[in-house]
Write a protein that binds this DNA or RNA. Structure first.
Length: 262
DNA sequence: ATGGCTGGCGACGCCAGA
């Protein structure tokens, strides 16, 4: 079968309705084939289905009032849903995980809990969620099909992934327990695509709204695309559409992507 | 060491984000 090239992207939109024009403009300019969205901050009925369809994308979503919410988009195709929510905790009602087959790739859109303040119950929830993710991901990494886990992981993997590690010392995103859980996930056999492509070079995906951090490129790398063995062999390029972060009324995250052949 | 910014909720201040 002839190989095809796909652009797979993840974007924490920080409110899909608040930032719909930013999202639509990015889709039009960059034309990704597969998109994972996080932080919809919208209920299921408030999802802007018509506008997304008019832009040329099929979509599935898992909304929630006020917070969280994840979605998957396929350019000129309807995602085929394979999972909604992580297994093993029926009491967890937060909308943070959605999985589907799109253009021949198994794709997860995940919004890992922030976990602040730490220590405390929110940090415990984060670590528990990571344990469940790692348990579920073991069933995906060795699949003979291409698989990508992408989203806002809320993990700063190393001190090279933050403009100033000292100022984030107490943050849940940088704690040893957080990093250990993420490292254990990678050790299952996942490829951290941005780090693989950029090597030692600095690359960020999030810049907070304070002190003109976006313009000064003082950011964090917390949005990740993890490729299973089958997909990692086809990794060609990776990048961050930082221009989206510099637009008026922007999300605090930028779209982060890979180009792969399958 | 702290607070700086932004948005949702629902009624002006509080919470959550990272």
């Amino acid at each position: 079968m002839p190989k095809k090239t796909l652009k797979l992207a993840t974007f924490n939109v920080n409110g899909i309705n608040t930032r719909l024009q930013n999202l639509l403009r990015w889709l039009e300019v960059e034309q990704p084939d597969v998109v994972a969205l996080q932080e919809l901050k919208a209920t299921d009925t408030a999802f802007p289905r018509a506008e997304i369809e008019a832009a040329g994308y099929g979509a599935i979503w898992q909304g929630q009032q006020s917070w969280n919410g994840v979605a998957l988009l396929g350019r000129d195709t309807e995602p085929v849903e394979s999972r909604r929510g992580l297994p093993w905790d029926p009491a967890d009602t937060q909308s943070r995980y959605l999985e589907a087959a799109i253009h021949g790739v198994v794709v997860a859109s995940l919004y890992l809990p922030n976990g602040n303040p730490q220590p405390g119950p929110k940090f415990d929830y984060k670590l528990g969620w990571m344990q469940r993710l790692n348990r579920h991901s073991r069933s995906l990494v060795e699949l003979p099909h291409p698989v990508v886990l992408m989203g806002d992981f809320n993990v700063i993997p190393t001190d090279d992934d933050v403009y100033d590690p000292k100022s984030w010392k107490k943050d849940a995103l940088i704690q040893p327990e957080t990093r250990k859980a993420f490292s254990e996930l990678l050790q299952q056999g996942w490829t951290d695509a941005l780090r693989d492509v950029f090597g030692q070079e600095r690359v960020y995906t999030f810049w907070d709204y304070f002190r003109h951090h976006a313009e000064r490129d003082r950011g964090l790398r917390i949005d990740h695309l993890l490729l299973n063995r089958k997909l990692a062999g086809g990794l060609k390029e990776a990048g961050v559409d930082r221009w989206v972060r510099l637009e008026p009324h922007a999300s605090d995250h930028a779209p982060t992507w890979v180009k792969v052949t399958i």
